[in-house]
Write a protein that binds this DNA or RNA. Structure first.
Lengths: 226, 226
DNA sequence: GGAAGATTGTCGGCGCCCCGTCTGTTGAAG
DNA sequence: CTTCAACAGACGGGGCGCCGACAATCTTCC
C-alpha cells in the first residue's frame, strides 16, 4: 500500500517533468529524483517559501494550488496561481539568488522538495535529467512571460476574456471571485465587474456567485484577441 | 593571428556563460562549444531570426546590440534590447517551438550560432555545460521578466525614471530618442515627453537632442521607486 | 431561521494616458 | 549655406480605468 502510493508519486513526478516527445524520463531517472527529493505537505495559508528568503530548494507541486505573489500588505500583487506540475523556486535556486516572490498554499498542498545541495551534484551527474529540467524551467518561465506580454497594453475586457479562456480550458466553469480575478490581472474589482457585465450582455458568459460559466467560447476568443 | 583571434572568441565565450563562483567552464568545455557553434556576423538592420520562424538555433551575442521585438508594422513593440553576453532564442530552441520574437541587429553584430541538432546531443553528454546553460537561460528570462513586472502598473513617469536608471548605469548620458524610449516602454511619445519635462523641472535630468543627461541620481531613484 | 461576512452590481468624480495636431529646433546631406 | 528629415515640446479632446461609496444578494455558521 505504501509502496503503491509511493509509486504513484513517482509516476506523477515522471509525467510532470519533460516532454513526451523528447527524451522521456527513464525509470532510473525517477529513482534518482526520489533520492534527492522529499515529499512535504502544506496546510492552506502556509508558505512554501517567502520573498527575499534564501533559495535553498525548489518545489514541484503535486497536488493543490499555490498562489505566487510579490509585495506585502497594500502593495501585494498576485503574479500567478499554479497547480500540479508546476516547478517553483528553481530559477532562484539555480541562480543562488533570493526568491523573487512568495508562494502560499491556497488549499491543501502536497509537493516534492528538492534541496539545492543535494540536487545540483546529482543533476551534474545525470545530463538527461538536467536537460529535462532545463526545458521544464524555461517553459515555465516562458509561459508566464508570454502571458504578461499578452496582457499588458490590453484593455481590461480583453484581459478578463483572456484569463477566462485560459482558466476555462478544462472545464467551462471558472470558480473565482471577481476580486481574485482583479488581483490576478492587477486591475480593480469594479473594472472586472464591468467587463464581466459586458461579456454577459454579449452572451459569452453567465455569471453567478463565485462562478463564471463560459457559454460561447468563440465569442470569448474573439474578444480576447482584440 | 587567426589563432589568437579565435582564442579571444573562446575566452569571451567562456566568460559569457555561467557565473564565476559556480562551476566555471573548463578549457575542455570551451573546445566542446567551439565544435558545435559557428561564428556569424550580421550587418545593422539584418535579422538573426524572425518571429514565428522555426527555432533551429540559439545565438550568443558576442559584440554589438540586438533589438528584440514582437509584431510588425504599427503593432510592433520592442520587448528589450540586449548586448554582449546575452543568449537569444534558446528558450524557443529547447522547447522546439517557433521564435516568439524577432531579433534584429542594431549595429554590427558578431555572434555564435548553435545549431539545435548539433547542440542537444552534445549537451546531453556534458552535464556541466548543460547546467551552465540552464542557469544562463533562466537568468536571461528572469531578468526580462523582472523588468516587465517592475514596469507594469507604474506611471509613465516612474517607467521613464526606471529606464533611465537602468540605461544610465554605466554612463550618466542616455542617447535615445524619446520615440525610442516610448517604444521600449510601450507608451506614447508625448507621454514620455511630458515625463521628461517633469523630471527636467525637478532637476533630475537635462534633456537635449537625442540625449538625456542624468543630474541627480538619488532624485531619479526616488521617482522610479514611487 | 437569523446574523455576520463575503460577494456582486452600480454610480459619479477624477487622473492618467492616448491621439491628433501644430510649432520650433537640431543634425546631416547636398 | 540651404534644405530636409528627424526630433523636442506643447496643447486640447476624449477614453479608460481607478477610487470611494453604497445597496443588494448569496453563504455559512451558529
Amino acid at each position: 500500500m505504501k509502496q503503491q502510493a509511493e509509486q504513484q508519486h513517482l509516476d506523477w513526478l515522471a509525467r510532470s517533468f519533460g516532454r513526451p516527445d523528447y527524451a522521456p524520463l527513464l525509470p532510473a531517472d525517477v529513482d534518482l529524483l526520489r533520492n534527492v527529493g522529499e515529499i512535504i505537505t502544506k496546510y492552506p495559508g502556509t508558505h512554501l517559501f517567502k520573498e527575499n528568503a534564501v533559495a535553498d530548494a525548489a518545489y514541484l507541486i503535486e497536488k493543490g494550488e499555490v498562489e505566487i505573489y510579490r509585495g506585502e500588505g497594500p502593495s501585494k500583487r498576485i503574479v500567478s496561481r499554479v497547480g500540479p506540475g508546476s516547478v517553483l523556486g528553481d530559477i532562484a535556486m539555480f541562480g543562488d539568488s533570493p526568491y523573487i516572490s512568495s508562494a502560499r498554499a491556497v488549499g491543501p498542498v502536497r509537493a516534492f522538495r528538492f534541496d539545492r545541495t543535494r540536487l545540483l551534484p546529482e543533476l551534474a551527474r545525470h545530463p538527461a535529467v538536467c536537460l529535462r529540467w532545463l526545458v521544464a524551467g524555461l517553459r515555465q518561465l516562458e509561459g508566464t512571460q508570454r502571458r504578461v506580454i499578452r496582457l499588458m497594453h490590453k484593455t481590461v475586457l480583453g484581459q478578463v476574456a483572456d484569463l477566462l479562456m485560459e482558466e476555462g480550458e478544462a472545464r467551462a466553469e471558472v470558480n473565482l471571485s471577481q476580486a481574485t480575478i482583479a488581483a490576478l490581472l492587477g486591475v480593480s474589482r469594479q473594472s472586472v465587474n464591468e467587463a464581466l457585465g459586458r461579456l454577459r450582455d454579449q452572451g459569452a458568459v453567465e455569471t453567478g456567485y463565485r462562478s463564471i460559466r463560459i457559454v460561447d467560447t468563440d465569442l470569448l476568443a474573439s474578444v480576447a484577441a482584440a
